[in-house]
Simulated scan of single mutants.
Amino acid sequence: MSQEPRRPSPSPFAVPMLLAAMGSIQVGASIAKGLFPIVGAQGTTALRLIFSSLILLAFWRPWRHRLTRQEARAILVYGAALGVMNLTFYLALARIPLGIAVAIEFTGPLAVAILSSRRPIDFLWALLAIAGVLLILPLSGAAGALDWVGVFWALVAGTGWALYILFGQKAGASVHGGTAASLGMTVAALVVVPVGITHAGGALLNPSLLPPAIGIAILSSALPYSLEMFVLKKMPARTFGVLMSLEPAIGALAGLVFLGERLAVTQWVAVGLIIAASVGSTASSRKA
């Protein structure tokens, strides 16, 4: 008699860990934007992933675990998606505000939430989140000032984010979370570093970039992705995806505090809708 697929076991720490991961990423993104004039978005992404992978490799020592072919394939795809997501998000961030870039990128995990939903109530929270995302985007009066190349890169980043969720859960299902995160980050670095070197060249060797690069690596990659790898093992993909709707709100706040990027009133209303969708999703998930 076949057994039912194992579902992620619930944990009271999963939601706080996910919130901490999202906050850390947005603070790191705010710091990273300050490096764009020096080494560009490509060079900044390369520095971030180099130091992130080194930190994670030293901490988790993944070489102690021998991967099966299936595990290695999942980690390769997960790492490639991670690299594309980080690179294209920084390319978007170089052209559009942080809160808007995150909101557009959120179309990826939102699609995961909708496509993997099986209960009518989940569609309600997803629709509420969609309304928030639409409001937070300057689709009307301010749309002319929005760089649509940045919008394109944010959409590509959203696709990478969706793949990261799906393959990250597969990678973390049978492999220790730290092992999957460290190996995935190494793959991401191998994908992005050649692009960064091609764009920034010798500027990447500037010693003054070392402190902020290490800070970005810890805040934007090493810490949050390690947390998320554990969270992915503790909640369904659809719940993870809808909870990530908090990301535009946190991004907007980080952009306001650290970059002076102000949102319109309607966009702050959108933040409230997105938070309501997240709270509703969490509550209905607990009842289930």
Results as ranks from 00 to 15, higher is better:
residue 214 I to N: 08
residue 252 A to S: 14
residue 21 A to L: 02
residue 240 F to E: 07
residue 281 S to F: 03
residue 130 I to A: 15
residue 26 Q to L: 03
residue 45 T to M: 02
residue 233 K to D: 00
residue 177 G to P: 00
residue 130 I to M: 15
residue 126 A to L: 07
residue 1 M to V: 12
residue 157 A to I: 07
residue 60 W to S: 13
residue 186 T to A: 15
residue 62 P to M: 01
residue 63 W to E: 11
residue 165 I to K: 10
residue 141 G to R: 10
residue 185 M to N: 07
residue 35 L to I: 03
residue 158 G to F: 05
residue 189 A to F: 05
residue 125 W to S: 14
residue 201 G to N: 11
residue 209 L to W: 10
residue 205 L to W: 09
residue 140 S to G: 10
residue 202 G to Q: 12
residue 258 F to Y: 12
residue 61 R to D: 06
residue 286 R to V: 15
residue 192 V to E: 07
residue 103 A to N: 05
residue 112 V to H: 09
residue 92 A to L: 01
residue 17 M to N: 11
residue 76 L to C: 10
residue 223 L to T: 01
residue 90 Y to T: 01
residue 258 F to D: 05
residue 41 A to M: 09
residue 107 T to Y: 09
residue 163 L to N: 04
residue 249 A to D: 04
residue 274 I to V: 15
residue 184 G to S: 14
residue 129 A to R: 09
residue 113 A to W: 03
residue 78 Y to F: 15
residue 68 T to L: 05
residue 190 L to A: 14
residue 200 A to C: 08
residue 141 G to K: 06
residue 94 A to Y: 01
residue 86 N to Q: 10
residue 220 S to Q: 02
residue 286 R to Y: 13
residue 229 M to Y: 08
residue 280 G to H: 11
residue 244 M to E: 12
residue 142 A to R: 11
residue 188 A to W: 01
residue 60 W to D: 12
residue 217 A to V: 02
residue 140 S to N: 13
residue 1 M to I: 07
residue 21 A to G: 07
residue 65 H to C: 00
residue 229 M to C: 06
residue 81 A to P: 01
residue 7 R to C: 00
residue 171 A to L: 01
residue 155 L to R: 09
residue 120 P to D: 00
residue 274 I to K: 04
residue 85 M to H: 11
residue 258 F to L: 14
residue 200 A to P: 08
residue 254 A to K: 04
residue 213 A to D: 09
residue 238 R to P: 04
residue 122 D to L: 12
residue 265 V to R: 11
residue 198 T to W: 15
residue 131 A to G: 15
residue 269 V to A: 14
residue 147 D to S: 00
residue 17 M to W: 09
residue 220 S to F: 02
residue 103 A to D: 08
residue 157 A to Y: 02
residue 186 T to N: 00
residue 19 L to Y: 06
residue 233 K to E: 00
residue 217 A to P: 09
residue 195 V to P: 05
residue 149 V to N: 10
residue 259 L to N: 10
residue 36 F to Q: 10
residue 214 I to Y: 06
residue 267 Q to I: 03
residue 216 I to H: 13
residue 271 V to L: 06
residue 148 W to E: 12
residue 235 M to R: 00
residue 238 R to A: 13
residue 221 S to P: 02
residue 241 G to R: 07
residue 137 L to G: 02
residue 65 H to F: 07
residue 222 A to K: 05
residue 149 V to Y: 05
residue 43 G to V: 12
residue 154 A to M: 11
residue 145 A to L: 11
residue 279 V to T: 03
residue 28 G to P: 09
residue 233 K to Y: 00
residue 274 I to F: 04
residue 85 M to W: 00
residue 53 S to L: 08
residue 62 P to R: 03
residue 117 S to Y: 12
residue 208 S to W: 12
residue 114 I to W: 10
residue 203 A to D: 09
residue 241 G to S: 14
